[in-house]
Design a protein around this nucleic acid. Structure first.
Length: 103
DNA sequence: TAGATGACTAATA
DNA sequence: CTATTAGCCATCT
């Protein structure tokens, strides 16, 4: 794997259980917010399942992904709830409450 | 080999 | 206020 992807996976792995983060935050950690798009693609590209908790990554609104790699968005929802993160019916979470800040 | 595309976000009109 | 454009990197066609 190359470049930014490795960085992305490394960062996502650091997200503690029961917490989530946004593409934008990860992108900022990489040095450029516009990398948020690359972050999304990195996870879509079917990363190291079991190593990279991609289900803890949501968009800026706290909404879960529609194209979740390992099944439906429903699967991601259940994984989060299993970790103690409450997911609303519209597939969103309280960023204020669960958002994990890096740096 | 070159061009289009995508789990996004922020800035501008 | 809403709508559109730009910018990033790796993969697919």
């Amino acid at each position: 794997m190359s470049g930014v992807f490795e960085e992305i996976y490394k960062i996502v792995k650091l997200i503690p259980k029961g917490k989530v983060t946004t593409y934008g935050d990860i992108a900022k950690c990489l040095g450029n917010v516009r990398l948020s798009r690359v972050v999304g693609y990195a996870l879509h590209s079917n990363p190291y399942f079991g190593e990279v908790p991609c289900h803890r990554v949501v968009n800026r609104e706290g909404r879960l992904s529609q194209n979740f790699a390992f099944g439906k968005i429903n699967a991601q929802k259940q994984m989060l709830e299993r970790e103690g993160v409450y997911v609303k019916k519209d597939n969103t979470i309280d960023l204020e409450k669960y958002r994990y800040k890096f740096n």
